[in-house]
Amino acid sequence: MKKTERRGHIRTALNARVSVEHETLGKSIFSTRDISDGGIFVVVEDQQFTPDMGDLVTVQVQGLPIPAPELRMVVVRKTVDGFGLQFADHQDD
């Protein structure tokens, strides 16, 4: 049986460092696995950073020559190796 792709945007592999800040969990640095027009997947290795589905976080790409914008994102998927974040302004996509 063929799996149906539910994502509305094409993903592109991207390994970038991002800071993710949560209201109660604090701020941590992670790597991304992929990005799309709708969001990113953040890889969590040993960190105890476990946001709940629907939680809002602030994400900022690290290591650029100038500070990147801080983006509001929503946790929309959780797996054993990380979590999927959707740009807050794309929640209706």
Rank of each mutant, 00 (worst) to 15 (best):
K2F: 12
K3P: 13
T4M: 12
T4C: 07
T4S: 11
E5M: 04
E5H: 08
R6G: 08
R6S: 09
R7S: 09
R7I: 04
H9R: 11
I10M: 13
A13R: 12
A13P: 11
A13G: 03
N15G: 02
A16N: 01
A16H: 07
R17W: 09
E21N: 08
H22W: 01
E23F: 03
G26I: 05
G26M: 06
G26T: 05
G26F: 00
K27D: 09
K27M: 13
S28W: 11
S31W: 11
S31P: 00
T32W: 02
D34W: 05
D34I: 01
S36L: 02
G38D: 08
F41Q: 04
F41A: 04
V43D: 13
V44I: 10
E45F: 11
D46L: 02
Q48H: 12
F49H: 04
F49W: 03
T50A: 14
P51M: 07
P51I: 03
D55A: 10
L56M: 13
V57Q: 03
T58N: 14
V59F: 05
V59R: 02
V59P: 02
Q60E: 15
Q60D: 01
Q60F: 01
V61T: 09
V61H: 03
Q62V: 13
I66L: 12
I66R: 13
P67Y: 00
A68R: 00
E70T: 10
L71H: 09
R72Q: 14
M73R: 03
V75R: 08
V76F: 06
R77D: 08
K78E: 11
V80S: 15
D81A: 10
D81V: 10
D81C: 01
G82F: 04
F83D: 01
F83L: 10
G84W: 03
A88S: 13
A88G: 07
H90W: 04
H90K: 15
D93R: 12
D93F: 11
